[in-house]
Design a protein around this nucleic acid. Structure first.
Lengths: 351, 351
DNA sequence: ATGAAAGCGCTAACAG
DNA sequence: CTGTTAGCGCTTTCAT
């Protein structure tokens, strides 16, 4: 039954031992030839490569992974993938990782610790060689992350980090970003600058807030609790928060928001109240989202060097993996932000 | 040297045979107990589970995958992850896949066939159990995808598909979406509706365009080449295209764009020319991007049921995987779009 | 320069 | 209900 035979041949996935059999070589020789081992004769290598090509040989990664105890896969846990920031970070990560021959497994926590825990478990289960994490809004305890380290799996945080000095991380200088944004507002003549802040257990929100207060202080501006409102920073939160702030402090003339989603909500509320931007209220945010240039007025925002952050973080992780057991001392990389001034805060075009 | 011993114990990853040894059972019994096999006594199961817990036993997925010839991982290839559409599709896919115990490996082609080919190769290499693909803009030939099917790996397309009837796919009814959008513009009194179209080898662009022409015809409107402009649909393309259209046909009074990025570019150009939206030119697009509600005016757009598309696509893939060899006839699912009317096209608020 | 053999950790016949 | 055995496909000593 020749038809069936052909079918069988077509469907069969060639393995190293198949090659070995057909070439009258041992599996070890073929294996070495395929990995271009130095002590295999060029002649043999050619024969092996040729047949491998002919048979469409594809290495079984799973088997190699099992044998070597390495999957060549990295895990990535992010709060969510929509929005410019994480999308770009992911791009940076993928680029570097793929170049190094690693695949990426991406998980979204949707800002929930519970989901984050499941994500971590799934990644450990999938035997990833290392994990990159940006924490969810609701992550207060870190047992699931300690577990990762307990197992000796290299771990790198980025952006939203666990602040113990014990882990490697790459972050933006959020403090500086906040400081720059608020200084800029002050330079534009703002006297009563409000802040739409995020959860203060998150390093990024805490530091941006500190940048805000410090900038005010260095300009000898008082810090007024009536000008400060904390929330989870959704667009709706921004709108509501702005409403509250305007009621508490009708004389406010500037807003620094911890992210652009909240800022755009605030913008809507400001416009709804019939106030002019930036003349009556100047606006600055954080993240440089795509929509910042699409609103009217266009929104001033702090750029976060997303792709660079991703690239730096994987590189760190790859270094840790390469270093193996010898636990390197945790490194922290801090990237410098850039303030992008747009219409929402530019009072004097010639300033 | 007790210290060293303790260290060794702490670091060792317990395996099934470790459990077996400590319990005086065979590996197979332990294996069966762990997977809650029906023919293992409850007493034994309890003993096994208890010890597994104590030793923090974690199954080695890689080994199981090798043995079973299944990695429980799915591959996903998308053009890019920024923007609302793919982000939401990914969310839908992850939800369903995780529930079914599958992990996802996400790759971005960045709209380049070359990268898409690499992505596919990487996924095959990683031994995924099935692949989901949305084609890149520049994909004209499909060898890399044929290769997937040649290897018997289940394959499902979504949104941007290969139009041979031989593959399973889930798409939006783009034709209907285009038809609805243009009908709506006509209902608003537009007589000279322009189209910013995308590459016509892509099913989505072709079908949206066809929706445009058919809607015009059914309203007895002539189809004027001067009102039609094709590009790759970036924001800049939209702006430029709009400039050209306005020069070719100064009397145009409506625009249907194949995506919202191009539409927002067009909007900027229209405003720059001092024309009013929607009174002079009414605008409608496709994708329901986040920024549609942030522009002024807010943009009318066709919603694509992103999450549903993702969920449907994985479900299909999981079915194919479950079905095994017996190649099911390829299925096509077509989701119905919804037109979201906003300010950019609403001429009479009471209409 | 090549081969033999062991084994990564797990599952699944095939016995009892 | 439990045990024995045989691999999945690959890498890697240790020989020669």
């Amino acid at each position: 039954m020749p038809d069936l035979f052909i079918f069988a041949v077509a469907i069969h996935r060639a393995s190293i031992s198949d090659l070995a059999a057909q070439l009258n070589l041992s599996v070890s020789t073929v294996s070495r030839a395929l990995s271009n081992h130095s002590r295999i004769s060029d002649a043999t290598k050619q024969r092996v490569w040729e047949l491998a090509r002919q048979l469409h040989y594809q290495p079984n990664h799973l088997a190699a992974a099992l044998r070597k105890g390495r999957s060549n896969t990295l895990g990535l846990v992010i709060p969510h993938i929509d929005g410019q920031f994480f999308a770009l970070v992911v791009k940076g990560i993928e680029t570097v990782a793929n170049q190094a021959g690693f695949n990426i497994m991406i998980c979204q926590s949707n800002e929930k610790v519970a989901q984050e825990r499941k994500n971590i478990a799934a990644l450990l289960n999938a035997q990833v060689d290392g994990i990159l994490v940006s924490l969810s809004l609701s992550t207060h305890d870190f047992q699931h992350l300690d577990e990762v380290r307990r197992r000796g799996i290299p771990l790198v945080f980025f952006d939203r980090i666990m602040e113990s000095a014990q882990v490697s991380a790459v972050v933006l200088d959020d403090y500086q970003g906040g400081y720059d944004a608020v200084s800029h507002l002050l330079d534009q003549g703002c006297q009563r600058i409000a802040h739409l802040g995020g959860p203060q257990h998150l390093n990024i929100c805490k530091n941006r807030f500190k940048g805000y207060t410090d900038a005010l202080q260095s300009y000898n501006c008082p810090i007024d609790p009536a000008l400060i409102h904390f929330s989870d920073l959704s667009m709706q939160d921004g709108r509501d928060g702005m409403g509250i702030l305007l009621r508490q402090a009708p004389d406010l003339d500037g807003v620094f928001a911890c992210n652009d989603l909240a800022l755009v909500g605030a913008m809507q509320m400001v416009k709804q109240q019939g106030l002019r931007i930036p003349q009556d209220v100047a606006l600055a945010g954080f993240s440089n989202e795509l929509f910042d240039s699409l609103t009217e007025p266009m929104l001033t925002s702090v750029d976060q060097r997303c792709e660079e952050m991703g690239q730096t973080a994987v590189q760190m992780l790859l270094d840790m993996i390469a270093a193996g057991d010898q636990t390197l001392t945790p490194r922290h990389v801090v990237l410098q932000p850039t303030l992008l001034v747009r219409e929402s805060s530019q009072r004097n075009p010639f300033a």
